[in-house]
Design a protein around this nucleic acid. Structure first.
Lengths: 238, 238
DNA sequence: TCCATCCTCTGGACTAGTTCAGTGAGTTCA
DNA sequence: TGAACTCACTGAACTAGTCCAGAGGATGGA
């Protein structure tokens, strides 16, 4: 069968099926090869169409696993003191956290810059993965200035770090700065998020100050772009 | 000449030339066809490589014109009362604003929802383009609830709307909410930004309340993703 | 000098394939 | 039962083309 005017564009058909609930959140789409047969087109055209729906936030990819329908976005206020689990639960979603790796290193220049370090300084890097409804959507690197946090490595680091700072170290966050950019996923982040290196992520870099106004840690968050809406209300901070 | 291990990947070469200042901000890259000859590869592979650099924020595309090296990002605080021109000038860049279109319509459902309208309401839609250093980077739609703003259409709408609200209507913004998502450019936005429909943009939707706590307008901003870093500091709001 | 037309150039979108490398399920063996 | 192996499946990445439609510059005519 040749393509003709009776043959609606694949991305329009899929979009309608998603909006019409024929395809449900987290549901797997047919493979690219199947779609290219179904719609009598080539795989490159299928990839382009799927990529367009991905850009719209309607579907997401997983490297070597397939394409899936995106669930609704989470509303996220980076200035909020609300723990991840609580934030997700409040939106009737299921949260989970996985500790991936902890390392203790001399701060490389990009970290040193963010933390405004003037000399060689040891930091702990805590890598965690965040899941919503069983899907991995966020890779987080917390970079803690070690000398502020003796013995933290032995703690349960899947819990709220902010709470741990307060309970064990009597640090409260007096101020936060955050920057948001669309970025390309570095290889280690991509692998953790089940995408190929260089795919689009939404990167949030946050710097936290304790009650003495000193920077104590920074945090790099890499979000799946379809999973989150950053939402800020000026009234919550006045 | 066949590809072999001596032939470095095109995107790595271009990335090095950009970081090494052999390719300067706003400079045009060779066309896809030229690059495919230079690097003995196909146009699809060139497009993939260029797309990867675009995702990194290093280059940007213009439909039918070519690919260009991205200038540094603007730091933008959506909660700031700072006018666009001032914000850009403070970062040693040149700002320009172009009024594209003004229309007066009954609010369609997506606008009505954002403005929390309970009944059929007339709105003014003011479309503007924002340029930094001569490059179009931002398409803005301001949606004003008409009955709050008698006679506004005749004003100079390239100036700061916020200032106009205050001077002519004695409205000050007491509160703002904004949402940020990566989105696909609608056709009318894409055309204005010199990209094809469906390309990635960073969409900011803002809602403003006057001193009586009433929503008076909302704003949809569509940013070129490589041009902006959203930057918020909690200390500026306490 | 200005406007209309033409032409080349551009990215966008498509055709028809191929190879690569990791995932995950099923099977086999200890 | 658990671990290792195998194999089909998957998207990623590549080859070699084609056609489309709008941008912008050059040219010619009024």
């Amino acid at each position: 069968m040749k393509k003709n005017a009776d043959n609606p564009k694949m991305k329009d058909v899929l979009r309608e099926q998603i909006f019409g609930r024929a395809l449900l959140p987290l549901q797997k789409l047919p493979s690219e090869r199947e779609l290219s047969e179904l719609f009598s087109t080539t795989r490159i055209s299928v990839k382009d169409a799927l990529g367009a729906l991905e850009t719209e936030g309607l579907i997401y990819r997983e490297d070597r696993r397939g394409w899936f329908v995106s669930p609704p976005r989470i509303r996220y206020n980076p200035l909020s003191r609300c723990h991840f689990n609580q934030m997700i639960n409040e939106q009737d979603r299921i949260a989970e956290t996985q500790l991936i790796n902890i390392s203790t290193i001399m701060a490389p220049s990009d970290y040193a810059k963010v933390l405004e370090l003037k000399e060689l300084t040891e930091i702990h890097v805590i890598e965690r993965l965040r899941y919503i409804d069983g899907r991995v959507v966020l890779f987080v690197e917390n970079c803690l200035i070690s000398h502020f946090f003796p013995g933290i490595i032995e703690e349960n680091l899947t819990q709220s770090l902010t709470q741990l700072y307060q309970d064990k170290y009597q640090f409260t966050t007096s101020r936060s700065r955050f920057d948001v950019i669309p970025a390309a996923a570095p290889a280690h982040v991509a692998k953790a998020l089940n995408i190929s290196a260089g795919q689009q992520v939404l990167k949030i870099c946050r710097v936290n100050y304790n009650q003495q106004g000193k920077i104590i840690d920074c945090e790099f968050e890499y979000w799946r772009p379809d999973a989150v809406m950053i939402s800020i209300d000026s009234i919550e901070h006045s």
